[in-house]
Structure formats: C-alpha cells, structure tokens
Design a protein around this nucleic acid. Sequence first.
DNA 1: GTCTATAATATGATAGAC
DNA 2: GTCTATCATATTATAGAC
Lengths: 189, 189
Amino acid sequence: MPQVRKIDDAALLDRLALTFKDVGYEGASLAVIAEATGLKKSSLYHRFPNGKEEMAQEVLAQVGRVLDAEIFPVLAGDTPVADKLARFVTAMDAMYDHGRQSCLLNMLSPPRGVQNGCGDAIASTFHRLQAALASVARQHGVGDEQAELLAEQMLVELHGALVVARGMDAPAVFSRAIARLPRIVLDAV
Amino acid sequence: MPQVRKIDDAALLDRLALTFKDVGYEGASLAVIAEATGLKKSSLYHRFPNGKEEMAQEVLAQVGRVLDAEIFPVLAGDTPVADKLARFVTAMDAMYDHGRQSCLLNMLSPPRGVQNGCGDAIASTFHRLQAALASVARQHGVGDEQAELLAEQMLVELHGALVVARGMDAPAVFSRAIARLPRIVLDAV
DNA sequence: GTCTATAATATGATAGAC
DNA sequence: GTCTATCATATTATAGAC
C-alpha cells in the first residue's frame, strides 16, 4: 500500500477549494485541511512543498484552468450573445453550487498591504473574466469602453450575490442575481 | 498614569473595525490587534473579557449604531426619493473610504457551518438595510415584493463592488457601482 | 506516497504587580 | 486600566521510518 496516492490531484484540489471557500485562507489551518482531504500534514507537504500558500495558488491555478476549458471558449465562440450569456449563467450556477458556496477570489484575497502570489492570481482572474465578458458585450454592439463597464458590473453583481447570500444564509439571492446578468448586456444600447 | 484609558471606546472600536476590514477575523490575531490599537493583549482582555469574538461583536454592534444614527433616519425621512438615495450613496462612499476598505459584513462572516453571534449580527444588519432600502423603493411607487428585490439588488451591487475593488486593487470599481445604485430604484416601474 | 514523531513558533487566554 | 510574565494549546514545518 505504499507509494500509492490516496487521493489524486484533481480530487485533492477539489477538496482544498471547497475548504478554502468554506473557511477562507486563514481559517484553513493544516489540521482543517488534513481533516478535509484525508491526508496527514506531512503528506500535504509532500504534495505541496511550499505549504498552504502553494495549495492556495494551485487552487487558483485550477480555477484558471476551469475557466479556460469551460467558460472562455463559450464566451469567445460564434454563437448568439443570448446563448453565450445563458450558458455563462448556467456554468456559474453550477460552479457556486446554486449560491451555497463562496467565491475563492473573495475568500483567498490576501490582507491589505500584503502582496503575494494569490493576490496576483486573483486580480488576473478578475481581469480575464472582465475581458471575456466585455467581448460578448461588444459582440452585442456595445462600444469598447461601455463593454468594459458592463463586464465589470456583471462581476460586481456575481460576487456581491455570493457575499450577500452567505451573509443572509439565503442562496436564493444568488439565483436571482445571476438571472439578472444577461439583461445587463442585452438591455444595453 | 495608571487607571487612565490609553484609547477611548470609540477610537478603540474604530481601530478594531479597520483591522478586521483589512485582514479579516481569522487574520486578526491578538498580536495584530495589539499592534493596531496600541494596547497589550492583557489590556484587550480587560476591555473585552470574551476576547476576539467579543471585539468582533462589538464592532458589528457599532456598525448597527452608525446605521441607526446616520443611515436609517435619512432613508426613513420624508424627503424626496432621489435625495435619500444620493445621501445614501455619499454615506456609503465615506463609510468604505471610496472603495479602499472592505466590508465588515464580508470580512467577519463566520465559516460555513459555524453559528456564532457574528453571523446573527451580520444577517440582521443585511436584513435591516434591505428593509430600509425597500421602504425607499415603495415610496417611489414600487410594489412590496419588487421593492424587496430592488433593495436586495442594491446590497448585492454595493458589496460586490467592494469585493471586486479589493480583488482588482481598483477602488474606482466601487465608485462606479455606488453611482449606479440610485438608478436601480429610480428606473423601476 | 504516506505515516509517526518532533521541533520552533504563534496564538488565545490568565495571574498578578503597579 | 495597563503592564510583564506565564501557560496550554494550536500551528507551521521538518526528519525519518515504512
């Protein structure tokens, strides 16, 4: 039974992501992470030699890969705007488990004044999402500057809904908010 | 020099609030808090016998008092709707330092599955804000149900803007979002 | 690759002097 | 009311067996 992975990389990253979403970066002690993954602390260091910070960065990298594989291709395709937005909403609904999970970009945000790899990855992810959504707005006939603003507004509503849904313990807040997202673009001039 | 408060309750709560906004509940260790307030750990326990949890709850209680004193009277007055909303936006802009501070309701949100006094205070604050904003929407002629939804949307945009502004290190995101808030109500049927 | 054992440090909390 | 000193525990991290 030695030399055998108890949990493969994909499942491990999944458990880590869920843990970070639940308790945040500081709240996710190695003891909590070990409990959540079924691996002992020393095994976690074997998989992530740089400890918790590396775990967080790998989780964020995985988010980037999921976006590259499932979200950006949809938004960049040549399907109708309404279709792209509907698929985006469905994907976000699944990604955040219908509002029952928090956003990693929020829960892994480093303290103010601290500059680390997580902060860069988070900012980069926000920017890439904004660019992808702005391209959809431009496809709908919106000007460049306004497209960036509409994309920004969509990110604001999406992430605000997760915060309010968590704070009020009301996942329906998220459902209502993502249902409004398409109109932000479709109702634009 | 004994028996003299080095920092009065108001200033102490201010420093605590700023610290929690910067690093979150888990990130605010007693060492960090001691550094931020100028009080030693044992002095903090003298002021807050129940430790960090009591500090967080007192900070949230102070938020409630500020809302009672400065926000709810404005929203409940008999001034025009547009005036109320403009003053609300100005107050939020100041409260979050033009998008440079995070929201306590987000940064103090307890881990999922954990039920403590902070969670209750946060949910209560969200509900009171929603009710106050919904009353403004009703004053504008919006029906009861729709008024609640519009108020919810305002909370979503407000808090999402703080998350995105922090994540992108772009306070302007917050400025743009709060500038949109009045239209949510004013453009409603 | 995972485990037990261990070490250095950080953290939450208390006791008692002034 | 604040401080220094202290303590039990938790946390991050490493060493070495299997």
